[in-house]
Write a protein that binds this DNA or RNA. Structure first.
Length: 289
DNA sequence: AGTTGTCAAGCTAGT
DNA sequence: ACTAGCTTGACAACT
C-alpha cells in the first residue's frame, strides 16, 4: 500500500510555475519547465524521506503542451531531465499518476473536443515515455459528459476508446464521478473495454447504487490486471457545509479510520489523498497507518 | 506589498 | 442566466 498526494508540496514550497497564453515565449516556457522539473525532483526526494510511495504529477508540467501555439520541441530539450526523474521513480519503486483536466472528454459529441483530448493524452504519454515508465503508471480521467443521453454517452466513450492508439490505452483509467457516471456506469464501460477503474470513495458516497465500500472494492479490484499494478484509489471526505462532493480542506481522521478498517487486510491499493492541504493530511494518514 | 480580475479548453447541478 | 466546482491556483495588472 502506497500513499500519495497531488502535484504540489506546501511544506517544501513546490508549486506549479505557469504563465498566461499572451505571455508565451520560449524563454518563459523553458523557465517554467525547468522550475517544474526541479520541483518534481524535490517532491520525489521529500517523498522518499517521508515514506510516500505514490505521487500524482501535475498535468501543467509543460504549460500549453497540447495548444496550437506550442512550436518548441520541449521533449528534446528536457529529455535528459525527464530520464533522470524516471530513474529516481524506478529506483525507489514509486507509483505515478496523472489526472488531466476537465477538458479531456473522450465522449464529446464534438469531434474537435475529442481531437484536443487525444492531443492532451498524447502529451501525457510522451512524458511517461520520456521517463521510461511502465504500464502501472496511469492517466486518470472521468468518463465525460452525458449530453442528455446516458446510453449514447457510454457507447460513444466505448467506440472512441477503441479508436485510441495502444500507447494511450496502456495508461488510461477511468474514475467514478459524483454527478454523472457512477461505479456501475464505469463497470458497464469496463466490460466493453477492459479499462481499469479508479474508485473514488467520496464520489461514490454522493452517487452510487447501494454498494458498500467492500462491495465496491470487490467490483473494482478485478478491473486491474498485473500489467496495471495494484488498484489506485482516490480518497477524500466531504467538506462540511459545502455542496455534496466537495473535497475537504483537511483530513477527517475519524472518517479515514473507518475507511481504512474496511480496506486494510482485504485489498491492496495505492491511495491518493484528494485533500486540499495535500502532504499535510497525507502525513497524518501515514502516521495513523 | 497586498489585492483583485483573469486565465486554452467543458460539463453539471444548484441558485 | 449565472456560478461553483472540478485536475492544481497562479499570473498580471492594479492599488
Amino acid at each position: 500500500m502506497k500513499l500519495g498526494y497531488p502535484c504540489m508540496n506546501y511544506t517544501i514550497g513546490c508549486k506549479i510555475s505557469t504563465f498566461k497564453l499572451q505571455s508565451f515565449s520560449e524563454e518563459r516556457l523553458v523557465d517554467s519547465i525547468t522550475t517544474n522539473l526541479n520541483n518534481l525532483e524535490k517532491i520525489l526526494l521529500y517523498n522518499k524521506e517521508n515514506g510516500f510511495g505514490f505521487l500524482r504529477v501535475s498535468s501543467d508540467l509543460i504549460p500549453f503542451a497540447s495548444h496550437s501555439i506550442m512550436n518548441i520541441d520541449w521533449s528534446k530539450k528536457f529529455k535528459d531531465h525527464f530520464e533522470k526523474i524516471g530513474d529516481i521513480i524506478k529506483e525507489n519503486n514509486f507509483r505515478i499518476s496523472f489526472h488531466p483536466g476537465q477538458f479531456v472528454l473522450i465522449n464529446s459529441p464534438k469531434i474537435d473536443i475529442f481531437e484536443a483530448t487525444v492531443r492532451e493524452l498524447e502529451y501525457h504519454v510522451k512524458m511517461l515515455d520520456l521517463m521510461n515508465l511502465d504500464t502501472t503508471a496511469k492517466i486518470q480521467i472521468h468518463v465525460g459528459g452525458v449530453y442528455g443521453d446516458m446510453e449514447a454517452a457510454k457507447s460513444r466513450f466505448i467506440d472512441r476508446y477503441h479508436s485510441l492508439n495502444q500507447k494511450i490505452k496502456n495508461h488510461l483509467v477511468i474514475e467514478n464521478d459524483e454527478k454523472s457516471f457512477s461505479l456501475q456506469d464505469c463497470l458497464d464501460i469496463h466490460s466493453e473495454t477492459n479499462i481499469p477503474i479508479i474508485f473514488d470513495n467520496l464520489h461514490h458516497e454522493v452517487k452510487n447504487n447501494g454498494e458498500t465500500l467492500t462491495e465496491a472494492m470487490q467490483l473494482v479490484q478485478p478491473t486491474w490486471t498485473s500489467k496495471d499494478g495494484v488498484p489506485m484509489v482516490d480518497y477524500s471526505s466531504q467538506q462540511e457545509n459545502s455542496v455534496a462532493g466537495k473535497h475537504c480542506d483537511t483530513i477527517d481522521l475519524t472518517h479515514f479510520e473507518g475507511y481504512l478498517s474496511e480496506i486494510l487486510n482485504q485489498f491492496d491499493v495505492d491511495i491518493m489523498f484528494e485533500i486540499k492541504d495535500k502532504e499535510l493530511s497525507a502525513l497524518q494518514a501515514l502516521k495513523l497507518i
